[in-house]
Every structure is written in structure tokens, then in C-alpha cells.
Design a protein around this nucleic acid. Structure first.
Length: 523
RNA sequence: GGCCCCAUCGUCUAGUGGUUAGGACUCUAGAUUCUCAAUCUAGCAACACGGGUUCAACUCCCGUUGGGGCCA
């Protein structure tokens, strides 16, 4: 059966995360796709918080979700307010389920009055015994509808006696067929469902009912969510129909799996967006990478910004099969975006990491810097923590520039550039040896280096000149490494780094010669 | 266990009956080079299996297998 190509106009879509965990990669992708869909068809994207589970819903998680979405620049048109969490945006609120009891009440009472739902007084033990029995005779566990036809008197008496109850839906036993926007025609046999539980009491609906009511009340036209909700769909359609509500369109994205092919979860490592943020992935990377998990434009173009994505996104090009979250490609993408940043911007992004790792310090230490990675005011002055020297933003920029093409994530900046911020370097003197060079040869090498560098005027202390004179000297022996390798080790203490000329330029004549002296003292 | 979804290189994927099965990441080799990157070039690598349908199946149908999800 072909998917009907209905014209999509001003759709209203939503994501409805539960604040029971950090913003998950999968949730972020669902949010992204919904956002893109709304943008593309000139619709609205709504953020609703499903916090009916009081025990597990935590304010911090809600804040994490908001923070993550804001970082990714996935903005919403209606929902909870991203800045002031008390106030909400839009006319269909409240946007937290915990505040919508009055709304639910109307629907639940109506369902009961119309005899489409009923009170069930079966105890947990009875239900469990029933389940075990059904399983034992090889049948799928399903409620036997025992309380479905209790007479009114008994119900009233039970309620009066405060007998614990739950509200069940008189599930119609028909086939439910719907046309999934991504999967195509999907069929379920509702007679297998049994009378499902829909509410704890008259004002607290369970997940499926609450979602149906909210989606209707918020005029959601397209429900685009993860495949893990596919089997909730027939239940929700049945509930919509029973309440006489319009049934929205449904579309289910395939899931994102971990490398072991199970649903992506904590045991696969970082799964929260903000963890990746802290590691130093750029939001551009995340958006671009996540969008290609389960979608692609059908061309060979792979670099996409949020805006270009919004132009080209379509449900038809969404993948039916699930995809594995593999960081390798994301690392490459991140490197790509880092290389394409302006130096000023990149430096601004790197500074918080240098601060956090204790290499530099803003002269006015703000609380946020002390906690971790906070925003950095670029006009701020910095000092090198160990030496207390001032360091200008321009100097930080030249340091960052050396590593711009070597950086995979921002958090690597400190490790790569520590040697700029230290009085003395700690390394094994054997590292100074170039290939099969003997330790006894090193003294002469350092004398040669000093011989070349000492006479250079400070005005001439620029990388071009340094490269010229050092290069000439180095050519005295076949391979330039005999001179340049020990120089780099002396300056950085590392076996891999940016070219020594560039490092020497930033370090300045005085410090460069000091490092050579310190290296010599090691011998 | 029941129901549902899915199946192209290791990974992300292009492909809609006739292609040398294309691209990207990873990996390997080479160029560059004092190192590491970056960059460029080349290479390795896939249609799960079995039946149909058809002149022709990666592509359509059925089954098997495998993976995943949901329910409890």
C-alpha cells in the first residue's frame, strides 16, 4: 500500500520528554526531526513535559533537557519557557502534565459516564496470579475483564469502602490499521490487547491517555516519535476514537542503537547531549551527525547546518531500519567544524577548557569558571596560572591557531598546549634523541641551536625567519631531524606537536632559550 | 512467550527490474614531512539465506534466519 501523499500545511508537532533522565541522543534526534519538519512546512514545534510520574520526575532533568535543546539551537514555538521556567509560551498550556489534572478529569469522567471505561478492583495479587496462569497454559497475558460488568451498586459500594482501584478502558476488539508516515501500513489486532489500564483515578491518567488528551488539546497534527512507541499507537488511536477526537497522523523513526545493537543506553558510554557538549563537541557537529542517523538527503552532500537541513528534510527520506551510534564519524565531523571556525570564535570556545584545567585564569574569577565550563567574556583578561604572567587574548589565539587543525574536540586543547603555560617541562631526556642519536651528541646539538638562535634580534623573532635560519643550519646534515627534533622536544616535552618554529615564535626568544638551557641541564 | 518493526561494505548510507553496486567515516599504502595533524592519491571492504515472479532481480512476492522494539 502506497503512502498517501497528503499535503502538509502548517503542521503542529511536539516532543514530550519525561524529565526522568538527561537529554538523550535519541530524544535530541526526535526533537531535531520534529523541529525540522515544523520549519520546513511552516508549522509549530511544541515542547511538553510529561512529568506525571512524580517519583521519577526531577527538575534538574527538565533543566538539562532545556539546556541541551538550547545548545543545539533547536527552539520551540510553544511550551515551557526556556529562560524562566515558571512562565510558558503558547495558548494551549499548561505544558507540564502535572499541571493539567483539570483537563484530564473531564475526559476521564466522560469515558466513565459513557460506559467506555470502568473501575477495576482486582488486586495486584489476583492480576499476577491470572497472568501466571495464562502464561502457564501458553496464552498471552491479558486482563480477563472480570470487573467490566460489575453492577453499579457494587461499584458504588466499593468506592465508598475506599477499595483500591484502577480505571480500565473497554478496549474494542477490532483491527486497528493506520498508515505510518515512515513505516507505511501497520496493522494491529486490538483483541489481543485486553482492557488496558488508562488512569489511576479520575484525574490522573496513565501515559497513553494523557498523551492522547494532550495531543488533541494542543492540536497536534503529526506525531513523530521513536519506534519504541509504535505499539502504543493502536492504543492511542482506539482511545482517540472512543473519545470522539480527531486522530492525528503518526510517524515512527527507527531507533538509534549502541554498538552492540541494543537500544542506546548509559552502558554504551555517553548518551546525553550535554556530556558531548562538555567533551567539546560543537552543536553544529551534533546536529549534522544526528540528522544523518536515520535520514539522508539522497545526494552526496554531507555537511548540513540546521537551516539547510530545515530546507531539505523530509519524512520520505527517513530510514526504516535502525542505525548504530558510532562516534568515529562524529569525531571526524567535529574536527571538520573546528577547522572551519574563525580563530576568534574557536579561541573563545577553548578558553573555558584552559580555565577548567587550571592553565589560565580570568583575572576576575567568576563562580561559573570555578564550577566548570561557563561562558567566557572575551573582553576579560587572563593570566597564566602557574607563572602569574598576563596573557593577551591575541596570544591565546596564536596558541589555539597552532592546534586548530589538530583538534578533534575542544577538551583536547589543554593537553595539547600545556607547555605554553608551564615554567618547566617534565619529560624523559631520552625523548630528546633523534632516531639512533647517542646522548653524547646532544650537547653539540644544543650548542648549535643556541649558536643559531642567540644572535637573532627580537624584532626578527618570527617563524619565517626562524625557519629560514634553523632550516639552513639543519641542512648541514642530511635529514633535518637531528636539529629540529631535539628542539621540539625541548620546547614542548612532547613527541608530537606543531612545528617548532611556530612554537618558538609564540614562546619568544627569552623563553625559548630558557627551555634549551633546561634541556641541556637534563643531560 | 505474544504482537509489531527491520535487513546493502566494520559503521552511516545511495540505489525503486538491466549499474564495473556509488559516496562518507574507519583501516592500509603512498605523496608531503623533524613529529603529530591537515591535505592529496590509491587500495581493502557489502546486497543474510532459500524459494518463487520475470527474458532479467539488491530491487517485487513468500518463507527461513538474524536483529530490534513494545507488553508483561
Amino acid at each position: 500500500m502506497e503512502a498517501k501523499t497528503k499535503k502538509i500545511e502548517n503542521p503542529r508537532v511536539r516532543i514530550a520528554p519525561s524529565p526522568t533522565g538527561f537529554l538523550h541522543i535519541g530524544t535530541a534526534r526526535t526533537a531535531l526531526f520534529n523541529y525540522l519538519f515544523a520549519k520546513k512546512y511552516d508549522g509549530k514545534f511544541i515542547l511538553r513535559i510529561e512529568d506525571t510520574d512524580k517519583e521519577r520526575s526531577i527538575k534538574e532533568f527538565e533543566e538539562d533537557i532545556v539546556e541541551g535543546l538550547k545548545w543545539l539551537k533547536i527552539s520551540w514555538d510553544e511550551g515551557i519557557n526556556p529562560d524562566d521556567t515558571e512562565e510558558e509560551i503558547g495558548d494551549y498550556g499548561p505544558y507540564r502534565q502535572s499541571q493539567r489534572k483539570e483537563i484530564y478529569k473531564k475526559y476521564i469522567e466522560k469515558l466513565l459516564k459513557e460506559d467506555k471505561a470502568y473501575y477495576c478492583f482486582c488486586t495486584k495479587e489476583e492480576l499476577e496470579a491470572q497472568r501466571q496462569y495464562q502464561l502457564s497454559i501458553g496464552q498471552p497475558p491479558k486482563y480477563d475483564s472480570k470487573c467490566r460488568d460489575l453492577d453499579e451498586k457494587t461499584v458504588k459500594q466499593n468506592l465508598k469502602d475506599k477499595k483500591p482501584y484502577i480505571i480500565r478502558f473497554k478496549t474494542p476488539g477490532n483491527k486497528v490499521v493506520f498508515n505510518d508516515l515512515i513505516k507505511g501500513k501497520v496493522e494491529f489486532d486490538a483483541s489481543l490487547l485486553g482492557d488496558m489500564t488508562i488512569a489511576k483515578d479520575e484525574e490522573t491518567p496513565l501515559y497513553n491517555l494523557a498523551a492522547v488528551i494532550d495531543d488533541y488539546e494542543m492540536k497536534i497534527s503529526h506525531i513523530l516519535r521513536g519506534e519504541d512507541h509504535l505499539s502504543n499507537t493502536p492504543k492511542q488511536i482506539l482511545l482517540s476514537e472512543a473519545m470522539g477526537l480527531d486522530v492525528p497522523e503518526y510517524g515512527h523513526f527507527s531507533l538509534i542503537l549502541g554498538p552492540d545493537k541494543s537500544k542506546l543506553s548509559k552502558r554504551h558510554g555517553a548518551v546525553s547531549v550535554n556530556e558531548y557538549k562538555d567533551m567539546g563537541y560543537l552543536p553544529e557537529t551534533m546536529v549534522n551527525f544526528i540528522s544523518f542517523l536515520g535520514w539522508n538527503p539522497g545526494t552526496e552532500k554531507e555537511i548540513y547546518s540546521l537551516n539547510t537541513l530545515a530546507k531539505e528534510f523530509s519524512l520520505e527520506r527517513c530510514q526504516k531500519s535502525s542505525s548504530i551510534f558510532n562516534v568515529q564519524k562524529m569525531d571526524w565531523l567535529n574536527g571538520f567544524y573546528i577547522r572551519n571556525k574563525s580563530l576568534a570564535k574557536l579561541t573563545e570556545l577553548c578558553i573555558p577548557y584552559l580555565v577548567k584545567d587550571g592553565l589560565v585564569q580570568p583575572t576576575f574569577v567568576t563562580e561559573e569558571h570555578l564550577i566548570g565550563i561557563g561562558p567566557v567574556d572575551i573582553k576579560e583578561k587572563f593570566i597564566i596560572k602557574e607563572t602569574k604572567e598576563n596573557i593577551e587574548i591575541e596570544q591565546l589565539q596564536s596558541i589555539v591557531s597552532l592546534y586548530q587543525e589538530r583538534l578533534k574536540y575542544l577538551s583536547e586543547i589543554s593537553e595539547l598546549t600545556v607547555f605554553f603555560f608551564k615554567k618547566e617541562l617534565d619529560y624523559d631526556k631520552k625523548l630528546l634523541l633523534w632516531k639512533d642519536m647517542q646522548e653524547s651528541e646532544l650537547k653539540a646539538v644544543f650548542e648549535a641551536l643556541e649558536g643559531v638562535l642567540e644572535p637573532i634580534y627580537t624584532q626578527e623573532w618570527v617563524k619565517q625567519h626562524l625557519e629560514k635560519v634553523l632550516g639552513e643550519k639543519a641542512l648541514e646534515r642530511g635529514n633535518r631531524g637531528w636539529l629540529l627534533w631535539p628542539l621540539r622536544i625541548a620546547l614542548t616535552g612532547k613527541k608530537s606537536s606543531a612545528p617548532p618554529f611556530e612554537i618558538a615564535e609564540i614562546l619568544g626568544k627569552e623563553k625559548t632559550l630558557l627551555r634549551l638551557k633546561q634541556a641541556k641541564e637534563k643531560l
